[in-house]
Write a protein that binds this DNA or RNA. Structure first.
Lengths: 208, 208
DNA sequence: TCGATACGCAACAGACTCGTTTCGCAATGC
DNA sequence: GCATTGCGAAACGAGTCTGTTGCGTATCGA
């Protein structure tokens, strides 16, 4: 973070302290603009300042470049996805995918996508941040669901977990992003994906 | 296309004809720049003209706006994917995914991705063109492979084909785009994906 | 040869963005 | 009170991009 911490015992620097309100307004404006489909490259400091009702000076005083600002803005986005506690792998995965589907309808998530889709070669730090903040936490959830399923014997022991994760998340993303881009996501999509996927993941002996 | 056709019997307009060489250079420059990670919004006529060794006038004379140019440029990209004629569904799908993996390492394919990833809301015509030129042809190949598999009894008759397509293509894209963004795509990824997917698609009675 | 059109090149005005600086005012500690 | 720092606003020079125009040259049909 670029904010200067006034930790315990630190001598507060003289003069007027920086406005936390301005800080928040700047970050909110940044996320808003990204959420509206503005790419990182087209995102202008001027536009952020105008949207935040803030002077450009106030932004440059805190962040030396645009990327730093966006990195800090992303860090404020918390992934509030709890580990689904479904009774079965099927139930947990469906719950998870439904949360993802719900999320993708909200602005703040779209803005993460816009960041992620920006050329990783040109914004390597943003791409890395995207992995930390958005991608890996969600991957870990799927991994945990699958691991538990293997433990309980519900899933094959020789399951290729990485590929299984890619199938679950990839199928969801493919369908929502490419095949039905505009339309409201079909409600039963999560069930359909998990259904077809599990018929392969599930141990033969168990049932079906 | 914006080129004026000199069809049979059409009176060729007087004066010097437009240079096909310039036309090609412009489109090539456009695709090159897009392939280098330049987004559609940041793509400038100036840069295209400079790269193509052409005056801006020559571009403006043919296309009235940037989107028209990009649409025409995309139309020149042929998807040279033949229908894999593998002996089995597994073999055909693996072949298909290997072609996709190979393609994704080339510039011209990356540029299509960059167009596709540009905000569809802000470039609806480009998004639609992307579907026509790149997405749907590839989807049809997978659909054909799966349909044949169902016909021959290799796949379940009640297979949810749309979801199966999403699983195959989505898993591939997810893994290459998000999980291993920079690294050279793992060679056996297609086999691994098809392996896990088919264990669900394949009819129980058949074998395994 | 002549008119018409296209070519590459250069220049233009207008708009936008950048990152910096200056201004007058506000808030804090000493 | 006074120094120090932050604030919003405005302006700056430099740069880029746009879409248009003028120039001299090249290439076509008549």
């Amino acid at each position: 973070m670029s904010m200067q911490q006034t930790a315990e015992g630190m001598t507060r620097p003289a003069g007027r302290p920086r406005s936390e309100k301005a800080e928040k307004a700047i970050i909110d404006a940044t996320l808003d603009l990204l959420g509206e489909g503005i790419g990182v490259s087209e995102l202008s400091i001027e536009a952020i300042a105008a949207r935040a009702g803030v002077g450009k000076t106030t932004i440059y005083r805190r962040w030396s470049n645009k990327e730093d600002l966006v990195v800090d803005a992303m860090a404020t986005l918390k992934p509030p996805i709890p580990l689904p506690q479904g009774a079965s792998v099927r139930e947990s995965l469906v719950t998870y995918l439904k949360v993802i589907a719900e999320e993708s309808r909200h602005q703040r998530t779209r803005c993460i996508m816009n960041i992620a889709l920006s050329d990783p070669d040109r914004h390597p730090r943003l791409a890395e941040r995207f992995r930390e903040v958005a991608l890996e936490p969600r991957r870990e959830i799927v991994r945990a669901i699958l691991a538990k399923g293997i433990e309980t014997g519900e899933l094959r022991g020789d399951l290729d977990v990485d590929i299984a994760m890619a199938i679950i998340s990839g199928a969801m993303m493919w369908q929502t992003k490419w095949v039905w881009p505009g339309e409201a996501t079909e409600a039963r999509l999560p069930e359909r994906i998990v259904e077809e996927a599990l018929k392969g993941f599930r141990q033969r002996a168990a049932e079906n």
